[in-house]
Design a protein around this nucleic acid. Structure first.
Lengths: 342, 342
DNA sequence: TTAATCCACGAAATCGTTTTCGATATTTAC
DNA sequence: GTAAATATCGAAAACGATTTCGTGGATTAA
């Protein structure tokens, strides 16, 4: 069970390991005859270079790290898939870790990846992350890092994002265009930038269309769960202002709300229209099917890897990071929970 | 930006690398005084052992590979999560790859993992895998391998499975107990063992309860999609035999069927009862909520890693693989698409 | 005092690959 | 025929960490 190494091939052929190594890598200072013999024996012995030795020597692992807040999650699992696919095409493998929206876990995961000498790291910030030293220090020490989806403007590195503000603007506008005038917003947790941006987009759309913003029509949630949406829809029904449109922070909240409204025999979209966010799979199979905003996770994952690869190359060449920011376009997916616009 | 190595610490302290290494690993033949000094400087310089060198020397990477047919998939993403969590607790990281149900891809992924010298591999066979040499050779060459969910009896290694036959038996029995007597089965693709097992369980339940099996009540699907379920429900409606119960191969098929039945104003569960399989998230939010069989992916992932870890240890100690098989219990989740049993 | 025991450390060999810099031997140019 | 160019190969030094086996000195036992 002794492993077949360059040395073994060299001895068997009466050559040096240097020659064998060069023969296998097709160096020009090795004769064709020798190359043939070396390759033949390597094939026969089923030689496989030791990746540890290669990594040690070349100072690269061809492995990247990916930290995501969640794994069992339609949007993030699409990101994971996009990253893995793109990475494999470029000869990289991906170690996936999940922060579970915890700042401490996020720091620990980062350390684990760093200890494994990954060539670069892709990370989406947890909702609870308020301090960015763990990231900036990593970057300062030379590890290429790319932020995706949940980012911070305070970190200077490449990023892949959607324009949450614009997307929310269009979602709200979609409701307005279809005739809604008292539009509620089910808002996400307080901290993350995405919550703020989507909320701003909502407000801007109202303002641009002459609808007065009303604090009472904004409902906060912290868990982003189906149950939360269900509960909040209860409040919406009881609201003294007669609400005729809902823009929810995610599809899951929207689905919960939809369920509650249906239970109360409220006609959708005629009495109340509702639009979600993300285009998770579930939004296509509710009844009525949920209108939503498509957030292309797979594409974001691919782009994030491409940016990381660029920075890995930059580092090899001694060039500085690009700090390029890619904004992925989103799109309204009109379905049956909103009326067709005019 | 020169890396901090043992050598550098040794020079700075006038010691040898051997002493520094041993001091950091708390060897007994190093004086407390020296240990203190070494640790202090290591701390100060922020020393981090080079994992490539460690791997090369110790012949282990503390990385395992995980191959799954899909990533954006409720069941498999739960498995991934279970594996990653369990692995991290034992100091292992996980490289995830997806075969996309392709035999060729599966072979390629296996090769990639092997080339990276992972300490072990977890794999669920693709539906199209009919030859197992790529797995058995890997095992023969000494890589610990554990099969989960979609396995083959022809491969001798540890496995984590559910008892598909039994689970299907109970799902069917649940329909029978609630009064159904003409029960259709929406069957999965032909090849995989799970398809066969669930079909057998269905048949056995009928037989054990004096219901005659009828070929015409079995509907085959190949894509396991919502649309497939929708289409097949159309056939079920048109079926000359009046069907009053459906056992679907997965929740997604069941959800598609549910949709079609609702469109046709068929009362659920009174006219037709329906039960799915897997307990995907979506089954809890359809209306009516889908009764189903819980297939605990997270637990399966954890157990699969534990088995792999055992085999990795076995290999280190020169012991043979256990080839242990763990059967994870499943459970009927009765909801509103079936009537309560007696 | 001599011999046995211990303590604290270091030299050196490995792990397997890569690459630089020579060193022969052979061929070409003039 | 001699000098220069070319073609093939190998020695050896990395890359860092680990561990075996000594070694020299101090301590203890006799």
């Amino acid at each position: 069970m002794a492993n077949v190494t360059l040395k073994r091939i060299a001895e068997q052929l009466g050559l040096s390991t240097a020659t064998v190594s060069k023969a296998l890598k097709n160096y020009s200072d090795i004769s064709d005859e020798t190359k043939r013999k070396v390759r033949a024996l390597a094939e026969e012995l089923n030689y496989k270079p030791n990746s540890f030795a290669q990594s040690l020597r070349n100072r690269e692992s061809r492995i990247i790290g990916l930290i995501t807040p969640e794994i069992v999650h339609h949007f993030f699992s699409n990101i994971i898939k996009g990253v893995i696919d793109a990475a494999e095409k470029s000869g990289y493998l991906v170690i996936t870790l999940r922060s579970g929206e915890s700042y401490e876990t996020e720091k620990r995961q980062l350390r684990l990846l760093r200890d494994k000498n990954v060539d670069g790291i892709l990370i989406s910030l947890s909702d609870k992350t308020i301090n960015y030293n763990h990231i900036t220090e990593l970057i300062k020490d030379g590890t290429p890092v790319v932020l995706y989806d949940k980012i911070s403007k305070l970190i200077n590195c490449p990023k892949v994002i959607i324009n949450d503000r614009m997307a929310a603007y269009h979602a709200t506008k979609h409701l307005i265009d279809s005739g809604c005038c008292a539009i509620a917003h089910i808002r996400g947790p307080l901290r993350p930038q995405t919550t703020i941006d989507r909320f701003m987009g909502y407000k801007k759309a109202l303002a641009d269309h002459g609808i007065e913003f009303c604090e009472d029509l904004v409902f906060e949630t912290s868990h982003l769960s189906f149950e939360d949406g269900y509960e909040i829809a209860g409040e919406i029904i009881k609201c003294p202002i007669k609400i005729d449109g809902i823009f929810a922070f995610t599809d899951l909240l929207a689905a919960g709300a939809l369920h509650k409204l249906k239970e109360n025999q409220i006609a959708i979209p005629d009495e109340i229209s509702i639009i979600g966010f993300s285009n998770w799979f579930l939004s296509s199979i509710t009844s009525p099917a949920l209108s939503t905003v498509d957030q292309p996770g797979y594409l974001m994952g691919q782009k994030a890897f491409e940016l990381l690869l660029k920075d890995i190359e930059n580092k090899k060449q001694g060039r500085p990071s690009t700090a390029e920011i890619i904004e992925i376009p989103t799109q309204i997916i009109p379905r049956d929970s909103t009326r067709p616009g005019r």
